[in-house]
Write a protein that binds this DNA or RNA. Sequence first.
DNA 1: AACATGACCCTAA
DNA 2: CTTAGGGCCATGT
Length: 117
Amino acid sequence: MAKLSKTARIYAVVQQIPVSCVATYGDIAKLAGLPRHARLVGYALHALPANSELPWYRVVNSQGQLSLGKLSPAGAAEQYERLTSEGVTFTSQGRVPLKHYRWQPHPLAWEAFILNL
DNA sequence: AACATGACCCTAA
DNA sequence: CTTAGGGCCATGT
């Protein structure tokens, strides 16, 4: 196990986020077996090519906000568009209600999945 | 090699 | 609600 690089593991996890769901940077790091490496997740997504099929837009920060906003308003707009087109609704304060949309994989099923990362 | 930066998180005050 | 500090590590200079 652990054949893939940390970045590759992160991408593999993001790829598993279901439609109409979101996950936080911290969630991704933890699920990839890299607890407390949330910052690495942000860096990995930043290095992602624009034509990537990876559902990067389903990753938000721990407060349900679109972290891309301050750096790239255009990117944030695309993220908002993609999420809403999947049926995700935002609060009046522009946040995603994590209570409703946060992705939580079944522990046992996930344990089996991460073995071949 | 050291140093600074960053699509971050968590806790404490 | 806000701010501050520590933790993390790939990248660029």
